[in-house]
Amino acid sequence: MADVRVTYDKTADAAYLYLTEPQASVRSARMYPCDPVDVDGMINLDFDEQGRLIGIEVLAASSKLPEYLLRSAERLDTEGP
């Protein structure tokens, strides 16, 4: 199973799932916001120049993602794990 880098800011309750190689420096060329009504929140999909999905931003992450994933995520806030 591949490792996916996940960052989490508890203060903002926002997480980001990186779907690229850890060493890769890939930039988002297009962002597609999922319909907030359909997903009951804000989830944005980032795509590269070739149309490949490179990342997923999840707002209100604590209500959308499993707790174990947020606990193991790289923390971006000052609270720590």
Rank of each mutant, 00 (worst) to 15 (best):
Y16M: 12
A2E: 14
A29S: 11
R5W: 02
M31D: 13
S25E: 15
S72Q: 11
E67M: 13
P66F: 04
Y18P: 00
S63F: 14
G80R: 03
V37C: 00
Y32Q: 15
F47V: 12
D40E: 13
D9L: 02
D46I: 13
Y8F: 03
F47W: 06
R71A: 15
V39R: 06
E74M: 14
L70D: 08
L70A: 10
E67C: 05
Y18H: 12
C34P: 04
P36S: 06
I43M: 11
I54F: 00
E49S: 12
E57T: 10
R71I: 04
S63M: 12
N44G: 09
E74S: 13
S63A: 14
Q23I: 04
L45T: 05
V4M: 10
R27W: 03
P22I: 06
E74V: 13
I43Q: 03
N44Y: 10
V58P: 05
R52I: 02
V6P: 02
L76V: 07
G41P: 02
P36H: 09
S25V: 08
R30C: 06
E21V: 02
A60T: 08
P22Y: 02
C34H: 05
S63R: 15
A29Q: 12
S63N: 10
K10T: 04
A15H: 07
Y16A: 07
S62T: 10
E57L: 01
S63H: 14
L19S: 00
L59Q: 07
K10Y: 01
V58F: 01
E79L: 11
P36C: 06
D40P: 00
A15F: 04
R71H: 14
Y16V: 05
R27H: 08
M31Y: 02
L19D: 01
L76M: 12
S63K: 15
D35L: 07
A73I: 01
Y68C: 04
G55R: 01
Y16G: 03
E49G: 08
M1L: 13
Y16R: 11
L17K: 00
P36L: 05
P81L: 13
T7N: 04
V58N: 01
P66A: 13
G41A: 05
Y18D: 09
L69P: 00
